[in-house]
Nucleic acid binder design. Structure first.
Length: 848
DNA sequence: AGCACGCCGACT
DNA sequence: GTCGGCGTGCTC
């Protein structure tokens, strides 16, 4: 595959009997339509739908893009440019994927380019880098323009070496040793000394290991004996050779020698001399060669280590039930309490699907995709398992992509974006923790929900989908009631572990009685002390990071605010900073009030950091660790905190959402929810659902392996209906209560919501645009379907003023289709107004 | 998304 | 007088 090309486009005169092909391509840009390029005739055989091609887009840009369609219809309005180069002989994006991507773009109101951008690992996209080359007509003696010293340097570098040598911009910068080298390139171009071109590079590089093997002529026994004789006295070389022969049974198996041995195995061995290895290579005893290897190595031996487990009776029954329901329904919800052993059931079903020859996709939220679960699946599925994680490098992602394409990986366990992988014969899709809001991508388009995309993909490919959760999304459970989804419930915890006992503690009462110890009620404090004394562990959940959400001057009332967003700055004690949690703006903590000079600066409210600080004082004997966005930013810190907790090096773990899922530690006997009210009182129709899920999920961390756990929820309002359901762990009752609310107020699952956000640097312009958009929507959809415009609670983020419009639609497909067309039309109408050219509009379908 | 073309302020 | 700011329009 060569990626260099020249700009002289072939212009064959099309003969009458020649077929001229055109390709519609998807550019990796947020453009609403496809662009049509002409296929050079002699490359007609190379066009593949789903393959990458290189085209010139605009005056300067060269891009790689995906062929979406090939046809013979020349565009009428314009002259199509030629495709410059074909990168792939076979599609990297398959037909089923293209179909799915079109559905995503359509459903989530975004462009195909945006979907492609999110879907392809960036290493499958090509990067273009500008290069300079000496102009062929340039001759130093005849050039009419004088060159500066710097310019001469560049010319000298370009004229040494072979004809037509080129340099990248970066290299020119390095040569001149300055950052501002662009002016010299520009000047050289004006003087016709150099010209520019774009060079596209494939960013994916396979992993290569250096290997060695015994030169062929020594394989015969006699030759080898001769060799030993020759090397007599060269002890180091003999050592190396002995080690090689020990590891590679040259006699028994000549192929073993062909495969060779990793060079590093010899050079980095403790008692061998690396230079002796090199000498043997130099003298032709050993041959060195490169081998492309997978980044996901797996010894065949590992397959032997497969674990065998048997399902419990309850699990067995659930599995049977799921299979039964799959007979009639494509989608089944497995509603199982935390710790019921859903994973074993999944594994069993995956095995069965693989035996039938199909592919399996197993989706997990990012935080739940831990090394533990991967190791477990590896043991069962060995090299057939691909792992798709956002922490992986791009090269690793390309390998998973190609592995799915080639059939090497039949099972993939992955996060949200794994739905974009090139499956073509899915038999089973599992969406674990299906209620998780992290399945929904919020910011850059496509604003998709991986659960819904997975369901659609399964539908397209005739696969069955199993949704799993202890606290199913209300929308999902509703579908089991309508009969669209099947339902299987697992209500008992695996292995005797009972459900934890949940108690409410009234913080208002404690405050009145002045018995609060910082932010802890005496009940929680006592419970912690007794659990710690019993050498058991504690998890504390507080849904706010930092030390305090804001600080306040006691003398003049000043509160520091973010300069870019309409929020107060949170105080982070460890870094001595005030930080904005929306845009990342930060400044040093003040010693005195900049408004009045007072030193009476008080922190108001509390976050995880303050809890950690307080606990270290209040429980000096305990080892307290904090787990939130701030302590897990570094690559392995999350794993480190988990493993410390697992080894019981830490006794108390304080954290945000992160502590609510995936952590299964047998020794945790107490979970504390510090401030339940902040979770319940949230201006959103899903607030109660989220609160219920969070409380139940975090409670599930308490008590495993036969120990009964205890959960203490601190609240100022214990009368809240939702607590009653949480305490009895009664999902059904919660559901019945919640579905009534949804029906009454016209929320999902009864109505569908599309949220439009209008952003502008100027609040007034933004508001005017929002009013116009609302009017246009009302004209098309009717008054009752459109709510707003309204400035959200946080009305300015990153210097953009926000306005929100909420559209409620009936769930009927035909209504939805028409409405989406209307919405796009209204948005385009606003965009086309001169006054609103700078306005940014975003649509979020099914926001969470 | 880039990048070129096109109209108004501080400099050789 | 020009260099260059970034506003808006287009890319097959």
């Amino acid at each position: 595959m060569s990626l260099t090309f020249d700009f002289v486009q072939p212009q064959p005169e099309p003969a009458a009997d020649r077929i001229t092909l055109f390709a519609d391509v998807i550019l990796p840009l947020p453009l609403p339509k496809l662009y049509t390029y002409r296929v050079p005739f002699e490359l007609n055989d190379h066009v593949v739908v789903g393959g990458r091609v290189i085209v010139q887009f605009g005056a300067k840009k060269t891009l790689s893009c995906i062929v979406a369609a090939v046809h013979e219809n020349p565009p009428k309005e314009y002259q199509a440019k030629y495709i410059l180069e074909f990168i792939d002989d076979a599609p990297v994006v398959t037909q089923p994927q293209l179909k799915l991507f079109r559905w995503i773009a359509d459903y989530y109101l975004c462009t195909l380019g945006e979907v492609i951008n999110a879907a392809l690992p960036s290493a499958l996209k090509l990067s273009s880098e500008s290069r300079v080359q000496l102009h062929p007509a340039f001759e130093a003696e005849t050039s009419p323009y004088p060159l500066s010293e710097q310019e001469q340097k560049v010319v000298a570098a370009l004229s040494t070496g072979e004809e037509g040598k080129s340099m990248t911009f970066t290299e020119v910068g390095e040569l001149l040793g300055i950052a501002s080298f662009h002016k010299y390139i520009k000047s050289l171009m004006q003087k016709d000394v150099v010209f520019l071109f774009e060079h596209l590079q494939d960013k994916y590089s396979p992993k290569v290991v250096k290997k060695v093997r015994l030169a062929h002529r020594f394989i015969a026994e006699a030759a080898l004996e001769d060799l030993f004789a020759q090397l007599a006295g060269r002890a180091k070389q003999l050592d190396v050779l002995m080690r090689y022969l020990q590891k590679v049974p040259v006699y028994q198996n000549e192929h073993a020698n062909q495969r060779g041995l990793e060079k590093a195995y010899l050079t980095s061995a403790p008692h061998l001399s690396p230079s002796a290895v090199n000498t043997l290579i130099k003298n032709g005893v050993l041959e060195q060669f490169d081998q492309i290897v997978s980044r996901f190595p797996l010894d065949e031996d590992d397959a032997e280590a497969k674990i065998h487990f048997t399902l419990s009776e309850a699990q067995q029954a659930a599995r049977q039930d799921i299979m039964q329901q799959f007979q009639e329904k494509d989608i089944v919800l497995l509603h199982g309490v935390t710790g019921a052993g859903k994973t074993e059931i999944y594994i069993d079903l995956i095995k069965q699907a693989l035996d039938g020859g199909g592919q399996v996709l197993y989706l997990l939220p990012e935080i739940a995709l831990t090394a533990q679960i991967v190791t477990r699946l590896m043991r069962v599925f060995g090299s057939r398992l691909g792992v798709y994680h956002s922490k992986f490098s791009d090269n690793e992602r390309v390998e998973v992509w190609n592995g799915v394409l080639s059939g090497r990986f039949q099972v993939v366990i992955g996060v949200r974006s794994a739905v974009f992988l090139p499956f073509d014969s899915l038999a089973l899709v599992i969406v674990d923790e299906e209620h998780e809001s992290s399945y929904k991508q919020y910011d850059p388009a496509p604003r998709y929900n991986a659960r819904e995309v997975a369901l659609m993909m399964a539908n397209f490919q005739g696969a069955k989908t199993l949704l799993g959760s202890a606290t199913p999304a209300v929308e999902t459970y509703y579908q089991t009631r309508t009969g669209r989804y099947g339902l299987v419930s697992l209500t008992k915890r695996f292995g005797e572990a009972g459900l934890p006992e949940i108690e409410l503690v009234d913080t208002r009462k404690s405050r009145e009685q002045k018995t609060m110890l910082n932010h802890f009620t005496p009940e929680l404090m006592q419970a912690m002390e007794s659990k710690l004394a019993a050498k058991e562990q504690v998890i504390l959940f507080q849904n706010r990071r930092g030390y305090s959400p804001f600080i306040n001057c006691l003398d003049c009332g000043w509160i520091p605010k973010c300069t870019n967003c309409a929020v107060s700055l949170s105080y982070h004690k460890h870094s001595h900073e005030l930080r904005c949690h929306y845009c990342g703006y930060h400044e040093r903590m003040y010693v005195q009030c900049p408004a009045c000079g007072s030193r009476n600066l008080k922190t108001v409210g509390f976050g995880t950091e303050k809890l950690e600080d307080d606990l270290k004082v209040m429980l000096p004997q305990a080892n307290v660790q904090r787990m939130d966005l701030d302590t897990t930013r570094a690559k392995n810190s999350y794993q480190q905190i988990i493993s410390d907790f697992e080894k019981q090096a830490t006794n108390v773990l304080v954290g945000t959402q992160m502590v609510t899922k995936g952590l299964d530690f047998a020794n945790v006997s107490l979970v504390g929810i510090i401030n339940a009210d902040s979770i319940i009182h949230y201006p959103d129709f899903r607030a109660h659902e989220r609160a219920f899920q969070m409380f139940v999920q975090v409670s599930g961390r308490a008590g495993r392996k036969g120990k009964k756990g205890r959960v203490i929820i601190q609240t100022g309002d214990p009368e809240q209906v939702i607590f009653d359901k949480v305490i009895r762990n009664d999902y059904l009752e919660f559901y019945e209560y919640e579905i009534l609310q949804r029906r009454e107020h016209g929320y999902p699952p009864f109505m569908r919501i599309i949220r439009l956000t209008v952003k502008h640097m100027d609040a007034v312009v933004g508001e005017r645009a929002a009013i116009l958009l609302t009017q246009e929507l009302v004209d098309r959809l009717g008054r009752e379907a459109v709510l707003g415009p309204e400035a959200p609670y946080i009305f300015r983020i990153r210097n953009f003023y926000l306005q929100e419009i909420t559209i409620k639609l009936s769930r009927e497909h035909t209504v939805l289709r028409a409405a989406k067309a209307d919405i796009l039309e209204a948005m385009n109408l606003v965009r086309d107004q001169k006054e609103f050219k700078q306005v940014r509009l975003a649509a979020d379908v099914d926001p969470m």
